[in-house]
Each structure stands twice: as C-alpha cells, then as structure tokens.
Amino acid sequence: MVNRFVLNAISYHGKGAISEIPGIIQAKGFKKAFIATDPDLVKFGVSKKVTDLLDAAGLDYEVYSDIKPNPTIANVKNGVEAYKKSGADYMITIGGGSSMDTGKAIGIIINNPEFEDVRSLEGVAPTKNPTVFTIAVPTTAGTAAEATINYVITDEEKKRKFVCVDVNDIPNIAVVDPDMMSSMPKGLTAATGMDALTHAIEGYTTAAAWELADCLNLEAIKLISKNLRKAVENDPDGREGMALGQFVTGMAFSNVGLGIAHSMAHTLGAVYNTPHGVACAMFLPIVMEYNQEATGDKYKYIAEAMDVDTTGMSQEEYRKAAIEAVRKLSKDVGIPEKLDALKEEDLDFLAESAYADACRPGNPKETSVEDMKELFRKLM
C-alpha cells in the first residue's frame, strides 16, 4: 500500500513568528497582498498586527473581510471578484478556519477558473494548478487549516456544508505565532482546542491511519491535553503548546482523514450555525463510545497521552478511561453536553446529510443513517 503525505513547503513557529512575513514577501518579489480575514479580527485589531508589519516595510495590500464564521458560497464568489479587481499577486490569510477556508477556495478558483462554480470543488476536485501563493497566519489553535489540504464551505441554499479535499490548496507558508492567538476569548479557545483534539483522536483512529500520522496525532493529543486548560486561562505557555499541538495534528489528519464526529458537526453547523468546535466537542465522547470496538488497543494510548495510568486495566477499562478523560477535559473548559436547538423533526435530514459527508467513510466503524440518528439524539 502506498501512503501519501502532503505538507507546507515552509512553516514558522513561536512567539514573534509573524515578523518573518515582510522578509518572505520581499525575497519572493511580490507586489500586492490580498488579505483574507474576518471582520471581527479587523475590528479588534488582530489583523493589524500583520498589516502594521507590511506598512512598516512599505508593502502594498488590500483587505477582504466579507467572511462569515461558517463561510458561504457567496463569501467565496465575492472574494474571487475582489481578488480579480485588487491587482494582488499573492494572498495572506489571517484567522481561524473560516478565513483560511475562504482563502483556499478563492485561490483555487483564481488559478483554476474552470471551477468557478464553488459547488464543483466538493469532494476531491481534479484541479490542475496550485492555489495562488499563500501565507497562512492562524489566530485560533484548532482548525489547523494553515497545514491541511481540506476546506469546508457552507451551502446556505441547501443547508449543508461540503468538504473539499485538494492537494493544490495547501498554503505555501504557515506562520504559527501564539501571540496572534492571545486575544481569543475563553469560549473560542475552548471550542477550537476541542476541535483540535477531535482532529487528533479521529485522525489516530480513522480507517486510513498509519504509523507516520499516528506518531504525530499521539503527540498532538499529549500537547492538547496538557495545554488546553491553561490556554483557556490565557496562560502564555498554554497558548504556545496549543499552537503547536493543533498544527501537529493538522499535518497528520490532513493526510489520513477524520470520522463521523466531524460529519455530524458539519451538519449541525449548516443547519443551526453551531460553532464547529463546540459541535465536535459534544460529539467526540459519544462517537468514541460508538467506535470503541473497532479501535483495537488505540484507546489505551489515547488514555495514556491524556495522563491516565492504565497499568492493570482491561481493554474495557482503558477504553472507558480514554472516553472519560475526553469528557472531563471538555467539561473543564466549559463545553455544553446538550444542544437545545436540536429538534426531533430535523433528525432525518441531519442524519442523511452527515452520512453523505466526506468525513464519514474514514470512520473506523461502519455506520448507517439510522445509527447517526441515534447519535444525534444523544445531544437532545
């Protein structure tokens, strides 16, 4: 069997890493940046940390911030037109998954105009050309979109999210600076951090998992378990640990896929606009219980990575211990266990949409629409 692994060409890590950006641009000879970021990051001066560096270096740019938390087809289409009018020759994405996913779709369409129908990018689109040169700067420790070949767009008309997987969309350069994450409020830090843990655990147990990805995902579980509580309290070491942990699992899950916790989370986001990290966090222990018989001894290593002593435990006991460790971390950082918006009459649509999601085939256990209905019901 042949396993493929796609990574950024270059990544920069640590406090102050954004200071590298002007030199990168000057060395490449680029003339003008198209900056994709969300309006709140502009409003609260987070994007300004990067644009101030560009201003000081005399580098030209244009800011595009028509981006929703669950980015839509319209956000992408408007961004494509804005890019064409801007005269930009490269892109900087600043934000969480919403900004970076929008930027990926824009960049792919600019260099592959035959895919201007955004829906045509769903699944594994056969694009020919890499995205426009992109520097990705995350402001959340969760999605790892700066390190992945995936992006997710919301189809508001059909009330669904669709996943796009394309080796041509990975940013050329990732700049992972924990100082860019220091203004995240507690709730967002918790939600994005639990999204990262879901990436690591689903990536470690997915049907396509293999040794290279496994060692990265296990290390990510350790980093996230050790640092998320501290990051929620805005501890600088916790922020730095989470910045690294979410990137490490991003390198891995991007190449092996995920599972049904993400499939169902995508559906909740599309129907109820539930924050993605919150949806993932609520589903993770539920899905771990559902999948446990299909995971061999992997829950033992998950439990140990989360600082559980499994000495003398049976398989049943260490599986339960891993699930409880996840549940406790989620509770400690303030994630709810139930979703009040969830309605019985929506379950058929939710389950069918989740079953059709691109992450579902990676689940280690075969599932069905009826199984997924029951899993959704556990959030009620």
Results as ranks from 00 to 15, higher is better:
133 F>H: 12
133 F>T: 11
133 F>G: 12
134 T>C: 13
134 T>G: 05
134 T>D: 04
135 I>R: 08
136 A>Y: 01
137 V>R: 03
137 V>I: 15
138 P>M: 02
138 P>Y: 08
139 T>Y: 04
139 T>K: 00
139 T>I: 05
139 T>N: 00
141 A>K: 04
141 A>T: 06
141 A>R: 01
141 A>E: 02
142 G>L: 04
142 G>A: 01
143 T>N: 01
143 T>I: 00
144 A>R: 07
144 A>K: 07
145 A>I: 02
145 A>W: 03
145 A>Q: 00
145 A>R: 01
145 A>C: 09
145 A>E: 01
146 E>C: 10
146 E>V: 09
146 E>H: 11
148 T>L: 05
148 T>K: 04
149 I>V: 15
149 I>S: 15
149 I>R: 15
149 I>F: 14
150 N>E: 06
151 Y>G: 07
153 I>E: 11
153 I>A: 07
154 T>D: 02
154 T>Q: 07
154 T>S: 06
154 T>K: 07
154 T>R: 03
154 T>G: 05
155 D>V: 08
155 D>F: 01
155 D>C: 06
156 E>C: 13
156 E>G: 07
156 E>W: 07
156 E>H: 08
156 E>Q: 15
156 E>A: 14
157 E>W: 05
157 E>K: 15
157 E>S: 12
157 E>H: 09
158 K>Y: 12
158 K>E: 15
159 K>H: 13
159 K>Y: 06
159 K>I: 02
160 R>L: 13
160 R>G: 05
160 R>C: 13
160 R>A: 13
161 K>A: 10
161 K>D: 09
161 K>N: 12
162 F>P: 11
162 F>Y: 15
163 V>D: 13
163 V>A: 15
